[in-house]
């Protein structure tokens, strides 16, 4: 087994997640956080939540994109090393949700950065967020050419 194989194995076995709240109502944020806590406990799958985008494999975005945070979102995405996957969580992250007509709302996350997995729900349930992260691993696998 070469060193690259070892690294790839680690990447797929233990994805590191960075969470960014774009303009969410907090409903999805607290569900993302609830995933880390004892009832759902994603760490048992090796999923770690970290604060630094430079360490992350998967970006979890909640909420609508607005004119001010779209640059922040783009920055965070650009700082992540490849191969990376992006998960949009919640109705707002998917399309703008109930806020799509508001004047300061650009729309879903995919207006700014490419999104690989969409997790619907208002707010999305922790189970579906975990499922979304597992789906995102398949995306990373494909990007690594291992699928």
């Amino acid at each position: 087994m070469s060193l690259t194989d070892w690294i790839n194995k680690g990447r797929l076995k233990s994805p590191w997640v960075v969470h960014f709240d774009c303009g969410s109502c907090n409903g999805c944020d607290i569900e993302v956080l609830a995933c880390l806590t004892p009832l759902y406990d994603v760490e048992r799958f090796g999923i770690l939540n970290i604060g630094n985008p430079k360490h992350a494999d998967v970006l979890v975005v909640t909420g609508t994109v607005n004119h001010r945070n779209k640059t922040v979102l783009k920055n965070i995405y650009d700082q992540m090393p490849g191969p990376k996957a992006v998960i949009a969580v919640g109705a707002c992250g998917l399309s703008g949700g109930v806020f799509r007509e508001a004047y300061n709302v650009v729309g879903g996350v995919d207006k700014v950065i490419p999104v690989d997995v969409y997790v619907p729900g208002c707010p999305a349930k922790p189970e579906s967020i975990i499922d979304g992260v597992v789906k995102a691993l398949d995306v990373v696998k494909t990007k690594l050419g291992l699928a």
Binding site: D21, T64, N66, R68, A102, N104
Partner: peptide, 15 residues
């Protein structure tokens, strides 16, 4: 501020 501003008070004119 402004990273989460949506302007939803204004939505009362369309909903």
């Amino acid at each position: 501020l402004g990273y989460v501003h949506r302007g939803l008070e204004k939505l009362c004119e369309v909903r």
